[in-house]
Design a protein around this nucleic acid. Structure first.
Lengths: 253, 253
DNA sequence: CTGGGGCTTCCACTGGGTGGAAGAAACGGC
DNA sequence: GCCGTTTCTTCCACCCAGTGGAAGCCCCAG
């Protein structure tokens, strides 16, 4: 460009993105003046660029005269992969590095847990393959998620016959409900040979705005059950770290 | 700009948006050359702009060398209100204009239906206020939605004691399941004084990729039950119209 | 070794971009 | 209803950032 550009060296592209970047979770509706202030540009420049963005429906002017993010961006946003996994990976790596145990990341899929990522060494415990799905109540990650689902979901989950992959699986609604209450209290769930004989695990929920977005888990051979306690702190730290990072991604500074 | 611009009159802003607009549901991953082709710009221009977009994380280069929509856009997309209501309104208006009956739009919220919009005249049937919530099984819109939820959801919904606001409410799991099968077959649901004595209704699901995104409904006073049949066609047309428009919004041309 | 497709870099040329300022419109206090 | 304040819109002289053709690079398949 040119003109009396007070700030030469700044590209038009960066200006356009600065305008879009002025919107965040804390400021989803902005006036022209606010956009100018937040993006550090002259009001008239913002005025012109915003008008063009509006004609492309990248932003939209509401009835209140304020601008919001528009439909074009909404549509494009759906094309981007959910960054959950990407955000979580470093924490999984750290957790694995710090403990040496097999760790994984899981999300709820209907009434099952889906294991979406894992970091593991050579420990001899069974690994659920990526994308693998299991019922929720016999797994630590599943219980961590279930414990934080809305009451109606938990109630309806408990009010049906539950699978029992091992004799240790908890299938009595009352006992399972008490277990879940315990999970909410402690902050993490455990499972002792409830899914597979020979291994136990712990799982902590990744809570974003109270919603269980995912769960982080560790698996150990049963003979080392006692060590689960030791793993609780790093596990919770990882889960909270992921939650904070995810929250930050959804609501940038 | 300037230079040998083959296409003077085109602003930088429009170029940036044309690049982003090159991505759609059918083309979520694009090479540089493809972006250039789809946006009608010189490769070198695209190269430079895309590099800058990447530095802002508006796009992102995958391991395969192709570009995808980036995190910035993903984050911004979450700030835009879901255009469902906006998309549906014209169809609701048309439906109301064509039938003269009170019509509404509803979505599922947990295990209830939430009425998010309505268009109504002076007909003397009770109106559910915007944002109002009701159980799913006694309402036509609720049954339209429920009928297309995944099996696990329906099963668990049916396997608990169901509220019975009127003596006509269907609460027997078997009968309700048969009713839902019927809904899937006919394409729309009906409710005869199942929620409120004195009024009946019909509801059709808005199906996008098989998912019940919303439901459109009409309410009549009970004495005019017979007219529900007559309303089925326009109702289904509206639901399909909304589905097509919503689908188009999620996956632009 | 050669051809080709996709990506990257370079650079002479130029017209689209800039922001201060003035004017219009909407708002709010009295 | 009047007037000061805030926000938005329009205008325009100035000029540098943007453009795209072309040449070079890299990798892979034949």
């Amino acid at each position: 460009m040119s003109g009396g550009a007070r700030d030469p060296g700044r590209s038009v592209t960066s200006r356009v993105l600065a305008i879009l970047g002025a919107f965040d979770a804390a400021h989803p509706r902005l006036t022209l003046t606010e956009i100018a202030g937040r993006s550090g540009m002259a009001l008239s420049t913002v005025h012109r660029l915003v008008a063009e963005l509006e004609s492309w429906r990248a932003v939209r002017r509401g009835d209140d005269g304020r601008y919001r993010v528009g439909r074009l961006i909404w549509e494009l946003g759906r094309l981007a992969p959910d960054p959950l996994q990407e955000i979580a990976r470093p924490w999984l790596q750290d957790l694995f590095a710090g403990t040496g145990e097999n760790v994984h990341l899981a999300v709820r899929d209907g009434i099952e847990v889906r294991y979406v990522d894992s970091v593991y060494g050579t420990r001899d415990v069974p690994i659920v393959p990526r994308g693998g799905r299991l019922p929720m109540h016999p797994t630590a990650a599943g219980k961590a998620l279930l414990a934080h689902e809305p009451a109606w979901f938990v109630t309806s989950y408990l009010s049906r016959p539950l699978e029992r992959p091992t004799p240790h699986t908890i299938v009595e609604p009352g006992r399972l409900a008490r277990d879940l209450a315990q999970v909410r209290l402690r902050g993490y769930a455990t499972a002792h040979e409830e899914m597979t004989l020979g291994s136990c695990s712990a799982g902590a929920p990744v809570l974003v705005d109270g919603r269980p977005v995912a769960a982080v888990g560790v698996v150990l051979p049963s003979r080392r059950v006692r060590e689960l306690r030791r793993l609780a702190d790093p596990l919770l730290a990882a889960a909270d770290g992921i939650a904070a990072a995810y929250r930050a991604a959804v609501a940038p500074p």
